[in-house]
Structures are given as structure tokens and as C-alpha cells.
Nucleic acid binder design. Structure first.
Lengths: 252, 252
DNA sequence: TCAATAGTGTCTGTGAGACACTATCGA
DNA sequence: TCGATAGTGTCTCACAGACACTATTGA
């Protein structure tokens, strides 16, 4: 296949086809102040831009001149807002219809990213758009967002929570070095429920997810905690069972 | 939001944006001849159509005039090929890049559908395109497909197999009435490995997935089998644990 | 010594897997 | 009676959850 086929012999027949708008939106999550938070941007108040002054997921139009692929587009938009370029990034899905954007038929591609709060430098600038963290409470955001972004965010949260039940995803929300109580706390924040300490530790230590940083303890006014780091910072660990495994049927 | 916003006040600014091609491709699975099979169509041998005579996943361009949303587009294309209009349908994800289609930047939205073979009427007609079932052997298709469809299909198969480990998905590959040995057989075909009869039956009957059709047995030259049907034909059942749950880490 | 948090041990329950066993049909 | 497949019972094992217990620090 040709890489830049703009003058390919195949282009002719498709020029007449009406193409929908194609966008990417990202739910960027972090844990700050003992809460799961998501990054939102305020939409500009300018002519021809719908949902002026509404808060929205960061994202926007795919740029066929810049973006090589969909993931690259998501990474570009993430970097513009947070200056982070190697997050945990996962595609949640695509939503497309003739009525989700007043400008016409549009398809958006939703990603979620997980970041440690200490790695983010919020880019409050550029075109004067505001950028801020908002807490997720009761597994949702308490705010009316632009477009169908409430639904998109809700799906991203559900995906996140579902995978947290049986994977090491929350580790990507922490700094490089952390204690097991830190890790448990992040699980509890994302899942919005308490976990048992003993079974949590057994489960984590039964895998090779983390390794202790030898002779490094977190000092405190109580018993100090062993400091760990990820054995393989790019690997997602799957646990043999889900944390809770006693509900049976869900909607198709 | 306006439903048909072609004359909206917001349209003006976006006319200059170069938009990628937007398509939908579907991996339509069934079980026939004791094999998992996928429906493929042969690409036409006409001017300006890339990959002439290659087999491909059914699908193609989104039509903003006909399709209300992405799922609707997938259902339309499914119906065109199989005449089925209520399959199990699930979005696998989106793949978009500047080099996956020689005609230019394109995004495709991959779905998989599960059908009982007895419900399908293959539409061998119209524009003389060939349509046929191809078996999945060794968890893959042994054939060079058009575009990046080998990769798309491979992802659909992986998603299917992963979910079969802990859901009732294979039930959608069977006729309305079936026996438990039938159901176990379909699991084994999709997973490409044997399952233990006793634990399989315990697991299925511990849920309300199926109900017996009273006094209806499948006659045979041996002990006849009880016939069951789905308690709720549109519901997907999740089992408390995966069939196999002893592998630990996978790539991020 | 005490408060506070880190970390361990022990017991229970659930459900998957292995596998031997019984049941029921037609030929 | 026998072959073949349907269907059951029993035992083991892994792991989540509950919860009581011990360990280690600074103030």
C-alpha cells in the first residue's frame, strides 16, 4: 500500500462522497486529593462554535495532515493539554450519528488515559481555553458537558472501573514509587468501595507486578511502609479472578 | 440539538477541513460443519477499486444520507449480506491511519456479529459480488485478505474468544432450541479446546441463562437430551469466573 | 507507653477441573 | 445385551473475603 496516496489512481471515485466529521475525545484521569478526577476544557465563546462556554472532554478534529493514525491523534491532543507523552492510553470505542453534533454527521473516537498527577503540567494557555480537573463523584461527573460528552465520559468510567476489578490499571495513576497501602487506596478511590487489606496484598504479591525498592521505606509517625516500583512499567497485569465476582447477568 | 443540521449556523467553518474516509466492517461469525466460520465477500474487479478479487470483511462506506448512526450502518450492511436483522452485534473498535487504504486517510469501525447458521440466507446477488463462509482454523483465517482486514479479523476473533471465556456469547451461534451438549460443543469450537462436561453443566445451570422446554427431548439412538431455550434471548450472561483463570500477565 | 498504620495468619466459601459413576435410549 | 451419549456425584485446588493477630515507628 502507498503511504501518502493523495494522488493515487484510486482517489477519483470517492470525491463525491459526503464524509462525516471525524474527531477524537479523551477522558484523561488522575487521582488528586483522594479523588478520581478527569480533565476538562472549556469551549471557546466564538462564532460558529457550538456549546460555547460548556466544559468538554479534550479532543477535536482529526488532522489528516498531522496525524498518522487515530492513536497518534489522541496522543497529540493529550500532549497539548498535559505535556505528557507516554500515558496509559486505551481506546474505549467510537460513537457516530447524525445528531450528536449540530454541525452534521460526526464520529468521535473515545480514549481514556491514566496519568500520575505529579507528571502533569496543565497547559492553561494557547487559545486562552481554560483547562481544569473535575472530581468524579458517585461514579459520574456532576456537570452538564458539551455534545454527548456525558455519555462518552460515562462509558470511559465504566470501562475503567470494569478493568480495575481484574487488572493492575490503577498503578498507572501513581508516581513511579509507591507503597502497597498507596496502591490499595487508589484501587478504592477508583472503585468507590473499600477492599480488604490482606487479600489485596496477597493478590498483588502473588504476581510479579511490583518489586520492592530495597532498603527504602516511607518514613512516618507509625510503622514505615515498604516502597515498591513496577517490575515492568509498560505491562498491564491481569489477576486470575475479579475482586468481586458474585453478580451474574447484565444487559446485552 | 437539531436532528438534520445541514443548514445549521455552525456548518460554515468546517467546509475546508479535509475529512478522512469513514467505513464500517463486520466480522459475521457462525458455526457450520462443526467449525467457526466467518463471512467474506470478494471485492469486485472494476476500475478504481483497490484489492480487486481479494476476499474482505463485508462492509464499506458510511452513507450519511441513509445511516442514522454507526450501529445502524453495521446492521444495514449485515442485512444486505445475510438478510438477518437482529443479530448479536458488538463494536470491536476503530482503526484509522493514513496508509491502511490506498485511497487516502481512512477510519474503519469494526463490529462482530453472531448468527445461527439456520437463520442466514446468503445474498449472492446484486452487483455480482461473491459471498461465502470461510472456516477459522488455529484461531485465524488462512487467507490473505484485502486492506488490513487480516488484522481487523484477528482482533475480532480475539475479542470473541476472550468474552466466551466468561460469558454466554456462544448461545447466539445456536438455533432457538438446543441441548446442553450442543451448547458445550459450540463453546469448544469457538475456544478451540475441550471443556469438562460436569463443570460446564454446573456453570450453565447455576445461572438462569437457559430453561428446559418441558417434555421435549432430542431423540437419538442413545439417551435423549433435554432441549433448552434461552430464558431471555437478548441478554448476555456473565459467569462468576473465567473458564481458565491461571495465566497472569499479558502485554499492555 | 501509646496511637497509628504496616503487615501476617487462619478460616471459610465458591466455583472450576478431574474423573468416576449412573441413566436411558435404539438396535 | 450393548454401544453410545446424557447426566450426576465426589474430591481437590485456587483464590477472594472476613477478621483477628503481630510488628514497628515517632511522639
Amino acid at each position: 500500500m502507498s503511504r501518502h496516496p493523495s494522488k493515487s489512481k484510486f482517489t477519483g471515485s470517492l470525491d463525491a462522497i459526503i464524509r462525516p466529521l471525524v474527531t477524537v475525545d479523551i477522558a484523561i484521569f488522575t487521582v488528586k486529593d483522594e479523588q478520581l478526577q478527569v480533565l476538562l476544557v472549556k469551549r471557546p465563546n466564538v462564532e460558529q462554535e457550538p456549546f460555547a462556554n460548556y466544559w468538554a472532554l479534550p479532543g477535536g478534529l482529526l488532522d489528516v495532515a498531522i496525524d498518522q493514525d487515530l492513536n497518534g491523534c489522541a496522543l497529540r491532543k493529550l500532549k497539548e493539554k498535559t505535556n505528557v507523552d507516554t500515558p496509559y492510553l486505551e481506546q474505549v470505542g467510537a460513537w457516530g450519528s447524525n445528531n450528536r453534533d449540530p454541525r452534521g454527521w460526526s464520529v468521535t473516537h473515545v480514549y481514556f488515559a491514566l496519568l500520575s498527577a505529579d507528571k502533569v503540567i496543565l497547559q492553561q494557555g494557547g487559545n486562552a481555553t481554560e483547562v481544569a480537573w473535575f472530581p468524579i463523584t458517585n461514579d459520574n461527573i456532576q456537570k452538564q458537558l458539551a455534545f454527548d460528552h456525558n455519555e462518552l465520559l460515562s462509558n470511559a468510567i465504566q470501562r475503567l472501573q470494569a478493568k480495575v476489578e481484574y487488572t493492575s490499571l490503577p498503578a498507572f495513576l501513581l508516581p513511579d514509587e509507591f507503597t502497597l497501602p498507596d496502591l490499595q487506596k487508589v484501587y478504592e478511590i477508583v472503585l468507590n468501595r473499600q477492599l480488604d487489606k490482606s487479600s489485596f496484598r496477597t493478590r498483588i504479591l502473588a504476581t510479579s507486578l511490583v518489586e520492592p525498592v530495597t532498603n527504602k521505606m516511607r518514613p512516618a509517625t507509625n510503622r514505615p511502609a515498604q516502597i515498591y516500583r513496577l517490575t515492568n512499567p509498560d505491562r498491564l497485569t491481569y489477576f486470575p479472578r475479579s475482586f468481586k465476582y458474585n453478580e451474574k447477568t447484565l444487559k446485552s
